[in-house]
């Protein structure tokens, strides 16, 4: 491919064109095209579960043979299980099942906390929310229900939470900070 003579006006112009094109590329794609997360009229629901969980089973007394089998520094009269029960989370929105999941406790021995975070996109307006939590569902655990009606504004956040203290929900208020 023939080369332009070095340092000619045409070569300088070609370099100018190259760097201009490069800068247009960098300038454009560093913030365009925009990505739309929510349509106008849509809103966001955050579902939060954070529960310390309930231990499955009861402590039991060890007999003398079992105690003797333990290392001398590990001998104790009682042994208590560490494993905690899983939890089924069911969410209905406007009487339609939106989400079901059984969460297990964290940790290698299933002895940690139960935690869940999910985000849903909704249309604004009236909302009937029904959250059902069932501890240890496979062992016939009893469900706990939370049902509430909301008026959800567009472009807002609704948070529904289940913790050791029970159910709660709130819509945080917009807190604008002024631009300089």
């Amino acid at each position: 491919m023939p080369k332009m003579p070095e340092g000619t006006v045409m070569q300088r112009l070609a370099q100018l064109l190259f760097f201009s094109a490069l800068m247009v590329f960098a300038g454009y794609f560093s913030d365009s095209p925009a990505y739309q997360l929510l349509e106008s009229g849509q809103t966001e629901l955050k579902l939060v579960v954070r529960h310390s969980g309930n231990i499955i089973g009861e402590c039991r007394a060890l007999d003398t043979g079992e105690i003797a089998a333990l290392a001398p520094n590990m001998r104790r009269p009682m042994v208590c299980p560490r494993e905690k029960a899983p939890m089924r989370v069911e969410l209905d929105l406007n009487n339609k099942r939106e989400f079901t999941e059984t969460i297990t406790p964290s940790g290698l021995h299933d002895d940690g906390v139960l935690a869940l975070f999910r985000k849903f996109t909704l249309d604004s307006g009236d909302l009937i929310l029904h959250l059902r939590i069932t501890e240890n569902p496979d062992a016939g655990g009893l469900p706990r229900d939370y049902e509430k009606q909301f008026q959800v504004d567009a472009h807002s956040t609704l948070i529904v939470e289940y913790t050791d203290s029970g159910f709660s929900s709130w819509q945080p208020q917009h807190s604008p900070r002024p631009r300089l």
């Binding site: 960098a26 794609f29 560093s30 929510l38 472009h155 945080p172 917009h174 631009r179």
Partner: peptide, 27 residues
Amino acid sequence: LSVVKPALSLGPADLNRPVQTVQVDWF
């Protein structure tokens, strides 16, 4: 490029409201 098209912030973050549209840095 910095003079012609300076890098600007979007509106301040507000965790009380969801982000509707975001200008993505595709790089």
